[in-house]
């Protein structure tokens, strides 16, 4: 008989605690009916240790995972996904190592990162049907690892608290950012991480926070954390002019396929108009 219930009554933290203490083996499936498609997540455990997790979409493809962690470029990942269609993750892993594109360690680390991101995200779900199927494990061709649940539960709880704060501070990701206009902004000695600089380079009243996240393969949590930090530092502020700039194709972004997610973002501004350059010249001459 499978364990069944709703996250309303029994939180992810409690479920993982149970699995850990009872050293259970099997797969936990959680489904959020209210959310958009893709709101299904599966986590597999072997004797109380987390060995695998994935969400309902295609994001568990190894090429995609390696792209997210920066081990493959977007172009490499795209080519591999097309050429190696139908190849399972384990086979693909061998091929990539043999081709010298990545190392065994790259794969393990990336898969670990992917699995943990899936699980940490689940901590933020407050609703959803769950079911634990004892002894059901991922297919043999999936790459599995082994992670102690204690550390996962601790980190997940920490993120949950942070998540709640961030959610409150930054409820809407469909707004755009701009660099701050306040001349008194205290901008000295800001230390930005690589990830933050990536975000900074996309800050533009035409790009919503959501689009920036997609372009950089960041989760809602990660982008919220970065943007919140930049808002706090006074580096950026919300831009109100975004509505007019979002084209109909951008507005339908959630239904586009994963491969298309990079397109809506404005990376290359439209060819610069002559008048803009003339204005810049006038301004700099006057300094």
């Amino acid at each position: 008989m499978a364990l069944k219930g709703n996250l309303r009554d029994f939180s992810t933290t409690q479920l993982l605690n149970l699995i850990n203490l009872a050293r259970k083996t099997g797969t936990l499936t959680i489904q959020d009916e209210d959310a958009q498609p893709n709101a299904t997540a599966c986590m597999s455990f072997k004797e109380g240790k987390l060995i695998y997790a994935h969400t309902g979409d295609e994001s568990n493809n190894l090429a995609k995972i390696l792209e997210t962690t920066g081990k493959l470029t977007a172009e490499q990942a795209r080519v591999i996904q097309t050429k190696a269609k139908g190849t399972n993750n384990k086979q693909l892993g061998y091929l990539l190592i043999q081709a010298g594109l990545v190392t065994q360690q790259d794969i393990t680390q990336s898969v670990r990162h992917y699995i943990l991101e899936v699980v940490y995200k689940l901590f933020t779900w407050t609703e959803g049907l769950f079911r634990f199927d004892a002894n059901e494990l991922p297919a043999d061709h999936q790459i599995t690892i082994s992670i102690d649940l204690e550390s996962v539960i601790m980190e997940g709880s920490r993120r949950l608290k942070e998540w709640e704060i961030l959610q409150e501070e930054l409820p809407d990701l469909d707004v755009a950012l701009k660099f701050t206009d306040r001349p008194d902004a205290r901008l000295q000695n800001i230390n930005l991480t690589v990830e933050e600089w990536r975000v900074v380079s996309f800050v533009n009243p035409r790009n919503t926070i959501k689009q920036i996240a997609k372009a950089n393969n960041l989760s809602d949590f990660e982008i919220r954390r970065i943007v919140y930090g930049m808002l706090q530092a006074g580096l950026v502020e919300f831009s109100r002019s975004v509505k007019t700039a979002v084209s109909p194709s951008q507005a339908t972004a959630p239904t586009t396929k994963p491969q298309d997610t990079r397109q809506p973002i404005e990376q290359q501004p439209p060819a610069v108009k002559r008048s803009i350059v003339v204005r810049l010249i006038d301004r700099i001459r006057g300094i």
Binding site: P183, A185, L187, Q188, N189, I190, N191, L192, L235
Partner: peptide, 8 residues
């Protein structure tokens, strides 16, 4: 620059 340069 009109703002203090952010430098790390």
């Amino acid at each position: 620059s009109e703002i203090d340069v952010v430098s790390t």
